[in-house]
Write a protein that binds this DNA or RNA. Structure first.
Lengths: 356, 356
DNA sequence: ACGGTCTAGGCGAACCTTCGCCTGGCCACC
DNA sequence: GGTGGCCAGGCGAAGGTTCGCCTAGACCGT
């Protein structure tokens, strides 16, 4: 039941194992008849080449390592899916190491990947942004690409344009006439949170609305916290007429909170989310959001890494930001069109009237 | 910039590479001073052991391969997360191969995993259920565990009890007095669909309600199809008073369709989903569903596989079904309790009145 | 008959480990 | 002073490949 080696195949075919190697890899010239005999023997024995031995020699494993903070997170897992797909299409395979448990600074995981001689590493773990050890390892012997900032820098970043996402979302609310715009953020001091908060502030600045800290409430990206944060926000600032939630999950919780308070969306309070998760289009009301190309970001990160590995690229752009796109739906006042969620052409008049 | 080997370290420390190996692995007896010198050299050179060479010799890679059909699917990815976590806690690492593109029968992916000499394989790809080739490879040289049926059998199955999930969901609707109960299924002829459909039928049989094919509509697990299927169902059978959606995503679409038709949930039509995804608890109304322990299923599958690998288990149970749990919420009439989504104690009277 | 080219296939080394066993020095004991 | 035992460290082999180079025969031209 043990594995069959090249030697075993060679023995059965009555040739040297080197010749067998030639045949199985289609290299060199071998007599058609010998060739057939070897192929037959390999099939009979169920020969499976040993990639370990091959890699030992060729110094390439056709493997890329992914360090992920939380795969159960729908958006991060989208990134991973994009990476995996691109890698697969180029004959590479993906090893995933999660750091979803407390107390990991990513060092252990990166070591494991390096020991396995992965050809390159991609990080999908915003949590690593402050871990200097991880940064050092990533700047180590194999190429790396990141989807979030890395302590110490030097690792090419490929990511959606989070700042722009917040900017577009908030601009949209501003354009609809809103001025008391709340926001539900991710955990404070985390990079994505700060960047999105910055986008939100800029959009307000553009129209001269001063930033009011009382309109910012902190969440943790979860539905439940979105719900609670929604209540906190409205307790605090009942005059809020619109809210930008930094992700869709929290936006869903927010919609529930608004509903519970008897507030109509969008008539009493407009909502815009961020991410464009699958359920967003069929919320009641359908959720306006910013589509973030997580899948594409994964693809792009993998493509860059593969280019680095192959030496096709030597000094990559320090930062590649992928474009985002506002998706207008009813939660900001888009008039629903029958049968087509997310269709329609403009805000319902009621909203604008009320805001005038 | 190339990798440092044991010999390099040995050279720097002035000892043989075998002694270096001893020190770095804490085996054998080595003079403390020599030991220190070697450790120093290893650190200076940034030595990273080569797991490839080690595995070649030890015939163990501490790696488990996962064949997944669609990682972007929230529920399947939960399974993978469970697997990864359990594997990690036992010093193993996970290689993921997706077969999310058309035209793969899983053969290529399984071959890749076997070539890399993974210690075991777990399949999380319901699509493979009909692929005989995949079955043959899984019955090959390394242990395997599956989370869905495999063509030809012989692979231990660890999965949530899908039949029971549908049974509980439908029973709940029956117990609430419903008799015209529709169901939105996954793609026809797929195993999970059929099993859940069977659970649904059994629950109806238990109370002598004949199965009405007109109340069954097909979806594809997506929100959008849930929405469309909801409309189809109600066009066809407007007297439906309750619907069991085979997964939550479709239930969300269904809620949207009902809302669009001006039907109140649960007063006009009760809805129960399946899976218990994150947003379910904060839908409007909160979605009654069956909690499926995907994460735990992943954990259990990985645990079994690790036991098989270690030889701690030799003939595993052919089938391990994990218990599911009905989560009662407002979409079936549970009276919402302030501040706590999903709380409460029973159906609102209105529903029962109407059904009487 | 002889040098040259081509073809089929083999040889040896290398990749980096681990592991069992060997050696040579030292101490102690009888 | 010989024998036994222990300690530090080295040696050789093995694991399954790939790759460059070599050889032996066949065939060709002169």
């Amino acid at each position: 039941m043990t594995h069959v080696s090249l030697k075993d195949v060679a023995g059965r075919a009555g040739v040297s194992f080197q010749t067998t190697s030639k045949v199985l890899n289609g290299k060199g010239t071998v007599a058609p008849e010998t060739r057939a005999r070897i192929l037959g023997a390999a099939k009979d024995l169920g020969y499976v080449p040993n990639a370990l031995a091959r890699s030992l020699l060729t110094r390439s494993t056709c493997t890329i390592g992914v360090v992920a903070s939380d795969l159960s997170n729908a958006v991060l897992s989208q990134l991973v899916v994009g990476i995996e797909r691109e890698a697969r299409q180029h004959g590479h395979v993906v090893i995933i190491c999660s750091i979803d448990y407390a107390g990991s600074n990513g060092e252990r995981e990166l070591r494991v990947l390096l020991e396995r001689r992965v050809d390159g590493i991609i990080t999908v773990a915003p949590r690593l942004e402050l871990e200097p050890q991880a940064g050092d390892l990533l700047r180590g012997p194999v190429p790396a690409v990141t989807t979030h900032p890395i302590a110490g820098g030097g690792i090419p970043l490929v990511a959606p344009d989070h700042r722009r996402a917040a900017l577009e979302a908030t601009r949209h609310l501003v354009a609809l006439g809103h001025r008391r715009i709340g926001t539900v953020t991710g955990p404070r001091n985390r990079h994505p949170t700060l960047v999105r908060l910055d986008g939100y502030r800029r959009a307000l600045e553009e129209v001269g609305v001063p930033f009011d800290p009382g309109l910012t409430v902190e969440g943790d990206w979860s539905v439940e916290e979105g719900y609670r944060a929604g209540h906190r926000l409205l307790d605090h600032a009942p005059d809020t007429t619109a809210v930008f939630a930094q992700n869709d999950l929290m936006a869903v919780g927010l919609l529930a909170a608004l509903h519970e308070r008897g507030l109509d969306v969008p008539a009493d309070c407009a909502v815009v989310g961020c991410d464009d998760i699958a359920v967003a289009a069929r919320m009641v009301p359908p959720l306006t959001t910013v589509h973030i190309p997580f899948h594409e970001a994964g693809t792009a990160a993998a493509r860059l890494l593969l280019d680095l590995i192959a030496g096709r690229v030597t000094d990559p752009a320090a930062e590649t930001l992928l474009p985002v796109r506002l998706v207008r739906r009813a939660s900001c006042g888009l008039r629903p069109t029958a049968g087509l969620g997310g269709g329609g052409t403009g805000p319902v008049p009621a909203v604008l009237d009320r805001l005038a």
